[in-house]
Structures are given as C-alpha cells and as structure tokens.
Nucleic acid binder design. Structure first.
Lengths: 188, 188
DNA sequence: CGACACATGTAACACGTTACATGATTTG
DNA sequence: CAAATCATGTAACGTGTTACATGTGTCG
C-alpha cells in the first residue's frame, strides 16, 4: 500500500513519467527500499484503473507523463492527514515464528533465540555503521535502528523469561486428539 | 510467508485437518493474529502444489487430514534452524510515509508527526493494558509492546531533530525540470 | 562498435485477504 | 425449530515482486 500511496503523493506535486517516479521515490527514501522499475508501471496502471491518475500524451521526447486526478489528490490528502494505524497487530514474521516454534515439542527455543540474536545483532551493527549521507537517510536509518534495537530487546527479554521458567508453559500438546507423530494416515 | 511456514511446522507434528489448523495457529499465537479460515485451505493447496504436504483420505467423520511430506519436514527444519533475516530493509509503512511526506512541499510534517504520535501512543496504551492470560500471550504482547515503543521513540527523535533543523534539508525539489503544480499537460 | 543507462511495458507469480456457497452438527 | 458452530471449499482480488522483451540514446 505504501508504494502506491507514495507514488501518488509524488504525482500530487506535478506530472511525472515512470522512470522519473522511480528516481523520485529512491531519492526521497534515500534508496533505503529499492523499487523495481516494473512495479512503477504496474502501480501506475492500477492507479489509473482506480481513477486516481491519468495517462498523458507522450511529450516531445516520448516520455509518457502521468497526472493526478482530483480523486487522486483527495486520496493523498486523506493519506497525509490520517495516521498509519497498525492493524490489531502488524504481522511480524519473527514474532509469529517464535510464538509457534515455542509450542513445538522437540524444538530447542533457546538455540533458536541465540541464532536469531546473532543475526539480529549483526544486522543492528550493520545499521549502526551505515553512513548517513543526508538528513533523510539518517532519519530513515533511525527507523531501522530503533526497530532492530526493539527486536534485540525482545529476544533478550524472551530469553530471560524462558530462563526463569525452564518448564515454560509454552509447550502444549495439540488440543484435539489426533495422531502424534509420523504418518499414521497413509502407510509409508 | 510466516503463515505458510507456521502451518507447515504445525503439520510437522502430525496430520491435521483444515479447521483444526486454524485452531492450532490461533492457540499457539494466543489469537494475536487472527487467521481467516479460507486462507488455511488456500495455503494447504499451495503447500500441496509445492509437494510439501499431501492430502489424506477423509476419515470416518469426513475430516480431510493433511500430512507433511519429507520435503515438507526438511523445509520446516530449514525454517527453524535459520534466523529471520529482515531484507536490506523491511518495508515499514510508517517510515516510508514519513520519509516521503517530509519531502513534500506544503506538508506540515510537524502536524503529521503529532497526529501519528497520538495514534501510536494510544496503540501503545492499548497494548500495555492488554491482559496476558498466558505465557505465550504475554510473550507475543511483549513483541508488540517493544515495537510500539520503538515507533514512539522514533517519532520523538524525528520531531526533535526537525526542531533542531527548522530549515530541514528534507524539502527538496524534484530532480529534473518538470511542471510544478496543477495539471500543465492537459487542460482542465 | 559495444556497453551501458534510459525508458516503457508485459506477463506471470507470490502471499495474504475476503466474500460467498454449502452442508453437517450441536445447542438453546 | 432456529441459531450458532463446525467444516470445506471456491473464486476473486489486493499489493508487491520479478523476469523478460524491446527500443533509444550516449559515451568511450
């Protein structure tokens, strides 16, 4: 959703052609989230379908400029005036994974956590040492930084809590009675 | 990706039928991320397509049990032994939005931030006051908590940095020469 | 000339999400 | 009996992502 909205917001500043939009997005996000060119044209067609942009005639150089419609401008205004509201819970791959993994008998969550911790820490260092050429870059980098720190903090907290509860209540069998292991249904 | 992997991991414990899988996922994630039943059947078919699960014969009660294949088990093992590696940058809707918004002339980023801050804060309080019935629930809740705190911290940091740079370098014009406002291409 | 960036597009696919249809079973 | 829950599925759609084809222009 954010790519779509971002492109629309950029178009709200004035017409652009596809390739230009990519450059704009890259620049404004300090190239933090690389955007495949193909996606631009894709997204533009979808915005057109939804009546938020219009395809202009190719100019002298053959560039196809796109312009925002009134509906599009309203959409941008709405986007900018309303906060990003994380759904009841933003689906976080790591949280889901650990939550599920912790309920799996035969899985050593401790090992899993420490493996993850190493990866997350190395990622954190990578972010910390990223050069912040520019104000935008450093702001965006802060976002990654804070998220990475939170991730590590959570892992450590989890580790600590598991240490306190070696008999952690996570391990639970499946609710209904069903075969336990192997492939009881079809013979191997 | 995480739903798919989670279901596969649950199936690695033994055969399940669709509806049961939803219950398992809900229980193991303390119902934090509600999962539409339809998605279960969807995902199961995709897993079957990829040779990671097999559809079993309906049992006496007519339940269609699914069982994991060897390839599926290997996939689970791989999933559990490797860390979640956030891409060069996990696309974060808020970060993208603020990064882009900050480059838009005519947008008061201060207002945007304070609106967002209010929403994020209220979300944080919601998380803080969430009842943690169970260990899993409280672990998952911690994940949301830490993420929400990081978000707020980032917003405050950004606000502070903008206060230090009232002439923030974010505001930049588009790179190439192009029409500035309005709809120069087609007459309204 | 050859390599490379610019520029536009198409086609397919990934996962996730929802709406809908259908029927069996349970329960107030 | 009626309503709710259990259970299985289908069909369509959303954004994001990638691979590919194609052509122009530029620069060493």
């Amino acid at each position: 959703m954010s790519v779509r909205q971002s492109l629309l917001a950029i178009l709200d500043q004035g017409p652009c052609y596809g390739y230009q939009l990519r450059a704009e997005f890259d620049r404004r996000t300090a190239s933090t989230w690389p955007l495949n060119v193909g996606q631009i044209y894709n997204t533009l067609e979808r915005l057109e379908r939804d009546g938020l942009v219009e395809r202009g005639e190719p100019d002298v150089q053959g560039h196809v400029h796109w312009q925002i419609t009134d509906a599009g401008s309203e959409e941008v205004a709405r986007w900018l005036s309303s906060p990003v509201v994380r759904a009841r819970a933003t689906r976080d791959e790591l949280a889901i994974k650990l939550a599920v993994a912790a309920t799996l008998p035969g899985v050593d969550v401790g090992v899993l956590i420490s493996t993850q911790r190493a990866a997350s820490l190395s990622r954190l260092e990578e972010i910390r040492s990223a050069p912040s050429a520019d104000f935008t870059a450093s702001v965006v980098n802060d976002s990654l930084l804070f998220a990475a720190e939170a991730e590590l903090r959570w892992l450590d907290r989890l580790d600590q809590r598991l240490a306190e509860h070696p008999d952690h209540a996570l391990q639970r069998e499946l609710s209904t009675d069903r075969p336990r292991r192997g492939r009881p249904v079809r013979a191997a």
